[in-house]
Amino acid sequence: MKRRPLSCFLIVRNEADRIEACLEGLAGWVDQLIILDSGSTDETAQLCRKYTDEVYITDWPGYGPQRNRALAKCHHEWVLNLDADENMTPSLRQEIDQVLSEPDLEANILRLPWQTYLFGKPLNHGRYSTPQGKLFLNKNGAQFKNSQVHEVLQIADPKVRTLTQPLKHFSWRTYQHLQEKHLKYACILAAEKHAKGKTGSLSYASLRFMTDFLQQYILRGGFLDGKAGFFMALVLGQYAFHKYAALAALQMQTDTEQGLSK
């Protein structure tokens, strides 16, 4: 049986330094390649047009809404959702071809093993080694959660199958980029929690630093990745701290403003 047709989309902004490494593994393999560029100020859009005619310049409504915009442009039932910092390998392409050629394929989500690199070192344990549901059947109203960050794929009656070949993931360019990215996500999540009426405190933020560090380093085996694993556990502890410290800061600001208005 011939492989089922495959659409692929990416949402991007200012990825000129690494977008081609991603697209080179996709162009000529997927049957449709869609790029949504939310206003790059570098050459990202121009580089993308070397690999596909379907490059769209958009505003930025948030991660969930942007992925749903891209999903709406997909012509084929099977959809691959990648980011500019993720690279396909020949072995992963071959495995996907084999699975999507199975006549009696029952799965509607294919999880791809995630091989994340931290400053050149692979993280084989912990949060950033969890397989990702990047390839799915776009039927019966599949959508991404309409959130600003950590947008989860929502699909009816999920039937999950995990592949064996890894998807290469190069999330952070530098230490500064790593910290800026995690702080940005933490503040977005804090704002979402605050809007829902949730509160935070510095004591809880400090507790979450410890619990998230220990979960990553001990319970999820980060210590097995050596120095890189210790580094990542500290970063994830910081991420948890920033999320709830930002929530506490928003609450303090709200309390002050309400006090002044009385």
Results as ranks from 00 to 15, higher is better:
Ala191Gln: 15
Gln143Ala: 08
Leu207Gln: 14
Ala84Ile: 11
Ser101Leu: 08
Gly133Asn: 00
Asp104Ser: 09
Phe144Gly: 00
His177Thr: 04
Leu47Arg: 15
Asn108Glu: 09
Ala191Asp: 14
Asp157Pro: 00
Asp31Gln: 03
Pro131Asn: 04
Ser91Gln: 15
Phe209Gln: 11
Leu71Ala: 00
Gly221Ala: 12
Ala233Tyr: 05
Ala228Val: 03
Glu192Gly: 05
Val12Met: 02
Val160Gly: 00
Leu6Thr: 06
Gly226Phe: 01
Ser201Asp: 06
His76Ser: 03
Glu43Leu: 14
Leu189Glu: 14
Ile155Pro: 02
Thr89Gln: 09
Arg67Cys: 00
Ile155Ser: 03
Glu102Met: 11
Ile109Gly: 00
Lys262His: 14
Ile155Glu: 04
Leu92Lys: 06
Asp225Val: 10
Arg173Gly: 02
Gln66Ser: 15
Asn81Gln: 13
Thr52Ile: 02
Pro61Arg: 04
Ile35Gly: 01
Leu105Trp: 02
Phe136Thr: 08
Ser7Glu: 12
His75Ser: 10
Trp29Gly: 00
Asp42Ser: 13
Ala249Glu: 12
Glu180Pro: 02
Ile35Leu: 09
Gly229Gln: 09
Leu82Cys: 01
Leu219Lys: 09
Ser91Val: 11
Asp157Thr: 05
Ile19Gly: 10
Cys187Thr: 13
Ala72Thr: 01
Leu112Gln: 03
Leu110Asp: 10
Gln253Val: 12
Ala240Gln: 12
Asp31His: 08
Ile35Val: 13
Leu33Met: 10
Lys121Ser: 13
Gln115Val: 03
Asn14Glu: 06
Gly197Gln: 02
Ala228Leu: 02
Lys181Val: 06
Leu105Asp: 01
Ser206Cys: 08
Gly141Val: 07
His182Cys: 15
Phe230Pro: 01
Phe209Tyr: 15
Ala107Thr: 11
Tyr185Gln: 06
Thr41Ala: 14
Asp157Glu: 11
Leu163Ser: 08
Leu247Phe: 08
Leu135Glu: 07
Ser203Ile: 04
Gln94Ile: 07
Ser91Met: 09
Arg4Cys: 08
Asp97Gln: 05
Leu260Gly: 07
Thr199Trp: 05
Asn81Tyr: 03
Cys187Phe: 02
Lys145Tyr: 01
Arg173Trp: 11
Asn68Ile: 04
Asp97Val: 01
Leu214Ala: 15
Asp225Trp: 06
Gln238Lys: 11
Pro158His: 11
